[in-house]
Design a protein around this nucleic acid. Structure first.
Lengths: 277, 277
DNA sequence: TTCGGTCTGGAATTTTTGTTCTATTCCTGT
DNA sequence: ACAGGAATAGAACAAAAATTCCAGACCGAA
């Protein structure tokens, strides 16, 4: 088995090769193929053991998969997945040049600002990659059908909720911002009816009031739409529709760029959907 | 050496840490620092041996460098360099392919979302180009010197002000959110002293209360920092420092991505500046 | 110039990782 | 239902990697 010449050397070719052969591959190897297409980054950075565990496959399956595609071993296949990430370099050089132009080097706060700007960009870019349109559409459906939309978001998510309140007000969408002022949150929530919907926003560490309010809304029969950061979130379970947003962070402060764009979308799309009738 | 907590977990933060300490590092470690900043991809993909050879350094120097930055070992530092490539910004071709894959065409709200995401990206990119980091530095100076920071932002800018209130609270920076609840804005503002500073955020059409409150703060002798969209803004004139942010918009709704990043920067940099003493 | 401490290079050690091997399981065709 | 062959799991092995260690070089202070 020295026939390495027919194995693709660049990522795109490899991708099509995998997609093409996925059909006539043994079961476990097909499983690896599917995993490789879905999580190329894992393949690029992981170890045989970690990838195997994550793909729920034996390490040997990865090696057999590599052989099946004509590589000498797993490492050779991995190199192709890595090359894909290397080609991003262009982008990076431009960024460096820009930093130098502005002479940011001498400015501490300039570096901080750059960090936050980049975190925002990364958030947006990665959201684009795994964006679930259907979920957005469903969320708009649910919210457009509601009589009153209750906006639940505290602490870090409060800016989002307050923006939604502002935007919906401008667009003529009836909404109530459930804020914590004077601990009145639960009073406000007690008026929710099954005709209403709640839009809850929360990220780790999930504010307990947000979780409680969401639960209360559910109990009262309202539809629930949540914007949160993982399926494990305590507000994901009770939701009719969940929109997953994983923001990048800089020095522990998470960006809000993507969440804000999602919020704007919901406000505008709900108003648009309603005006169609 | 179990002190891994102070080591940056994200690439940009690590970058600033390296840049900051490059001066007082031993010769060989400084050499590693320079190499790491110039060839981050090598660090991400290489092995200790290969990187050492390429940087013309001993393998042990890489490990010592990692320890100096607070990591347990080289692998831990490498993980940070890898995370940067994991959350990378897509290039143009990949973006197009993505649009095709997701079949946005059929989804109305998908188009809206894409519009907002793109507006955010445009905002950030154009802000980068004409960024005045001296203004940011001066703003941080002024705010770091203040006893109490009054946060003024209403309507569309309220999410920004409320975020600042949240972040500064977490960072131990004394601030007061001048909100419009119960029309108490002017009461709150009447306590401002010349030792304080006001951070006013406003965009066209400028909310009259924001303008009035900013003027009141100025009259009472406080320093003024403003985030606004043009030199012609009514809150630009009374300001000691003005940060200009021109957000892109989609269907008349302006992005908040850049403003939010600036807000985060101010909060973090002010806290940082204060802790230096 | 000498002493104290820190820094460095390179080999030794330990850990991790990829790969191979083989008994067992799972198909498929008769 | 069963034989024959391919596929798989899991442990064993070999290779490669990261990390530690320490003798000697280097640098600054006295």
């Amino acid at each position: 088995m020295t026939a390495t010449q027919d194995a693709p050397r660049d990522y795109q070719a490899l991708r099509t090769a995998i997609a093409g052969r996925a059909g006539d591959l043994p079961r476990r190897l097909a499983q690896v193929a599917a995993y490789a297409l879905e999580f190329p980054d894992e393949i690029a950075f992981g170890t045989v053991a970690s990838i195997a565990a994550s793909a729920e496959v034996q390490p040997s399956a990865l090696v057999r998969f590599s052989h099946a595609l004509g590589y000498q071993g797993f490492s050779e296949l991995q190199e192709v997945f890595r090359s894909r990430l290397r080609e991003r370099v262009l982008n990076y050089d431009e960024r460096l040049a820009q930093l130098r132009d502005h002479g940011i080097a001498g400015s501490k706060s300039g570096l901080v600002l750059d960090g936050f700007l980049e975190a925002s960009e990364r958030s947006i870019a990665s959201f684009r990659e795994k964006l679930d349109h259907a979920a957005i559409d469903r969320a708009v459906d649910v919210l457009a059908g509601a009589e009153i939309i209750y906006l639940i978001g505290l602490r870090r998510s409060f800016p989002i909720a307050s923006y939604l309140s502002y935007a919906m007000g401008k667009l003529g969408v009836r909404s109530i911002l459930v804020d914590g002022v004077a601990g009145m949150g639960s009073e406000q929530a007690s008026f929710i009816t099954p005709k209403d919907a709640a839009l809850a926003i929360s990220f780790a560490p999930y504010a307990s009031e947000t979780v409680a309010l969401t639960g209360a809304a559910r109990t009262r029969g309202a539809k629930i739409v949540t914007i949160t950061d993982s399926l494990m979130s305590p507000i994901a379970a009770p939701a009719d529709v969940m929109i997953e947003v994983a923001e990048a962070n800089f020095e522990g402060f998470r960006s809000l760029a993507t969440t804000m764009a999602v919020a704007m979308t919901l406000a505008v799309a709900v108003a648009g959907r309603r005006s169609e009738r």
